[in-house]
Amino acid sequence: MTPLISIKNLSISYKQKFALQHVNLDIFSGKILALIGPSGCGKTSLLNCLNRMTDLIPDCLVTGSIQLEQLELVNSNIDVNQLRQNVGMIFQKPNPFPLSIQENIHLPLREHAKLSKSEQLGISEDLLKRVGLWQEVENRLTKPALSLSGGQQQRLCIARALTLNPKVLLMDEPCSALDPLSTEIIENLINQIRHEITIVIVTHNLAQAKRLSDQTAVFWNHNQCGKLIEHDQTKKIFESPTHPDTIAYIKGLQG
């Protein structure tokens, strides 16, 4: 099977200091890939390369190659906005715009397609239903999005990202600011969309990685520089890891 995204010998450095080195990783279409590992080993940095958010960080240098369906992403002269429409992103901290709930959906929608008001309303209703938010916000669509709870805000952000119909969704610890109930709702949501969209999710919650993902990649810090130490089917990583650091890290799941 040919991978949707293929990462070859990728290194990322900030101000000449490497954050991640020599990563080789394939991401397959329609699968969920979990990135796990201790803090500071470059998971977020890797995610940021996949939709070129690294462009926004001064002094961030990326080398190597990332191919998304034959399109070279690293340092290439591509239409970044086009890329970001195909590769959506959910942040650790829910970050809806300071607009009304429905305008959060309509703003990106209008930006990328010419739609009438009623079409916009129809699409936002669909999306809010998909993320299971519709019943909760049906009567307050014009109220500020910032008045929602954290979990609701995060689901709104997912709905907002889905407006662009991305092929890939990058999620950076999407549940780390949420309580277990909201986390469960988001996990159910991920399970619902997993067949239509390729997901790369960073998580510190090993149980979550185990529950959700098809593949898992384990990152580790060697000499203050992130390395990919092991990647395989999630089942394999959790049942019979080979790398000693992975074994120690997975043990945390039982301990």
């Binding site: 939709n51 958010m53 926004l56 970044v80 906005n81 086009q82 970001r84 429409q85 959506g88 992103m89 942040f91 901290k93 970050n95 809806p96 715009f97 300071p98 607009l99 703003l107 990106p108 930006e111 990328h112 952000c157 907002r160 990202a161 407006t163 662009l164």
Partner: peptide
């Protein structure tokens, strides 16, 4: 908050649009 700028960039909203619609009003 930079959160809005990040969200805007990730949603492929042009920077001028984001500035006019979100950043300046906020």
């Amino acid at each position: 908050s930079d959160d809005y700028r990040l969200a805007g960039a990730a949603l492929a909203i042009p920077r001028v649009k984001l500035l006019w619609r979100i950043i300046l009003p906020a």
